[in-house]
Design a binder for these strands. Structure first.
Lengths: 173, 173
DNA sequence: ATAACTCGGATTCATAATGTCCGAGTTGAA
DNA sequence: TTCAACTCGGACATTATGAATCCGAGTTAT
């Protein structure tokens, strides 16, 4: 609320949805958690809408990145060790696997349209965009959730994750 | 119109606006043009909305990538040799310079919020996203408009650009 | 001097992300 | 065994953003 004006700079179009950031934060927290964590608790911890975060956690669940435990003391748990979950996995789970660039096949339109037979391969522009898309994804694939957790720990030089886990499972068990 | 169903696959979020593709096609065409080309003509050539394309060409003009010539036989001309215009230049001109990821500073929210003093540097998640963003931009920067023109020429093994330029300046001069 | 043609910015419409709700299912305890 | 509480899951409004459009200012060739 207070830092809203500083952070929510409007972007024009290539912006990544905000849900991705929340989902990544949740994954990092789940790295340290030892019991299932409910979506509502994660939302309170991060100060975001509970129902909205739930939506994105469901996406992670569908992508098999987290496993949902139902029932009274249920919640979410990582399905794999955090070393085997990449940032790209999370981004694709939340944003969908669609590429950043979808070719509208402009070359096949208008009076000088290229014949469909000549358009089996993507056009030069599309190739350039695809290459950039691949570079982006490759960079995201290089960073695992475990890496993120380690970086967070280094940043603050105190066991923040441990403190958070402590907060997640209070006396009211 | 005919190839609509095949191309316009819906993407979820990280999609690049369609204007980028049109703008790039225009730049490639302008590579070969020897006289100013009006926006309306470019729109007809590519089979897209004239007024909408105009909007994006204005963005290119604002970014100093093309120069607008007013008056009766006016239109758009590239300001620099195509070797000195990168694909990234066009993308940033149309999409805006905003990064793909804007950090909402989740770490400063909620009951375990980090103090603002500890948040001078971007968080680990943001750093990973910025790195990916840089990789994406670097890939786009590698490809110039001139490169795109050459690739197009190779793809079709006939002087398509020449034919297009011929169509652009018909008898009605 | 004129008239036609150009670009430029302000405006409206549609799509998609954001945020919310309630129902189905499961678990733990009584 | 029963019950009750708590969990996730998908379907539903709302709002912000991009897509598409229009008309006015300026310039140039006639």
């Amino acid at each position: 609320m207070l830092s809203e004006s500083r952070c929510r700079r409007y972007a024009e179009s290539v912006r990544l949805s905000g849900g991705v950031e929340a989902a990544l934060h949740c994954c990092v927290v789940l790295t340290a958690a030892t019991e299932p964590v409910p979506a509502a608790r994660l939302a309170e911890l991060h100060g975001v809408s509970a129902t909205y975060l739930a939506k994105h956690l469901q996406a992670l669940s569908r992508a098999e990145l987290v496993h949902s435990v139902q029932g009274k003391s249920g919640g979410y748990v990582l399905t794999r060790p955090p070393e085997e979950i990449t940032t790209l996995d999370v981004v694709e789970a939340v944003e969908g696997p669609a590429p950043t660039f979808v070719c509208a096949e402009i070359r096949q339109r208008g009076p000088m349209a290229a014949p469909p037979e000549a358009c089996t391969a993507p056009c030069a522009i599309t190739r350039a965009m695809i290459a950039a898309d691949r570079a982006w994804r490759a960079a995201l694939r290089e960073v695992s959730i475990a890496d993120l957790g380690r970086s967070v720990a280094q940043d603050y030089e105190s066991d923040v994750l441990g403190q958070i886990v402590g907060w997640l499972a209070p006396a009211e068990h």
